[in-house]
């Protein structure tokens, strides 16, 4: 963790925050009001978590908290102490995530890519919960993650394909990206 030269004049008291991110506990010194999304991105360098609205609507900042999709822009880092936080960086070796990446790639389920990490984490939680592979159900589960480019169709198809594989009991670990 690097502190920029820009911290010197901060009068507001920074507090120690011990965050369990991707299985490792890291301590950072930040004011209590810092959002988890900002601490992940600007203190821990985990920039796969994107910030699209800070209004709790767009889902770009989705992380998994104790395995469940959660908005990191609506959680103070200090309040996240003691929770198990997972970002996209933390699941890159997960076979289910790799199956999703591969399906997203093949189905053209991303364009600008800004919503993609949030989409993938939501989809990963769906795979882990074995959500039924029906398009309507998938759309419902993904409805909290906005995408402005794709129109969702190919995301739904990609997620459906992986969910079907899970249904069939296929090992969700086809080779990752080229």
């Amino acid at each position: 963790m690097t502190e920029g030269a820009n911290q010197k004049t901060t009068a507001e008291e920074a507090v120690e925050v011990a965050l369990e991110v991707n299985g490792t506990v890291t301590k950072v010194l930040v004011p209590s009001r810092w959002l988890l999304s900002d601490v992940l991105r600007h203190r821990l360098g985990l920039t796969a978590t994107h910030v699209g609205c800070e209004q709790g609507v767009c889902g770009a900042c989705t992380v998994l908290i104790d395995g469940v999709p959660t908005r990191s822009c609506l959680l103070f880092a200090k309040a996240a102490e003691g929770l198990a936080i997972t970002t996209l960086e933390g699941v890159l070796d997960d076979p289910a995530l790799q199956a999703l990446q591969e399906a997203f790639h093949r189905h053209h389920a991303l364009q600008c890519g800004f919503c993609t990490p949030g989409m993938l984490l939501t989809a990963l939680a769906m795979v882990r919960q074995q959500v039924p592979a029906e398009p309507e159900t998938i759309r419902e589960y993904l409805s909290g993650n906005l995408c402005r480019c794709t129109g969702y169709q190919y995301i739904v198809e990609a997620v459906a394909e992986v969910l079907q594989a899970v249904d069939r009991g296929d090992p969700a670990g086809s080779p990752a990206l080229p």
């Binding site: 709790g56 908290i65 959680l75 909290g144």
Partner: peptide, 9 residues
């Protein structure tokens, strides 16, 4: 209520 990520919290 809201979406999955909202309901989870």
């Amino acid at each position: 209520i809201g979406h999955w990520a909202i309901r989870s919290r």
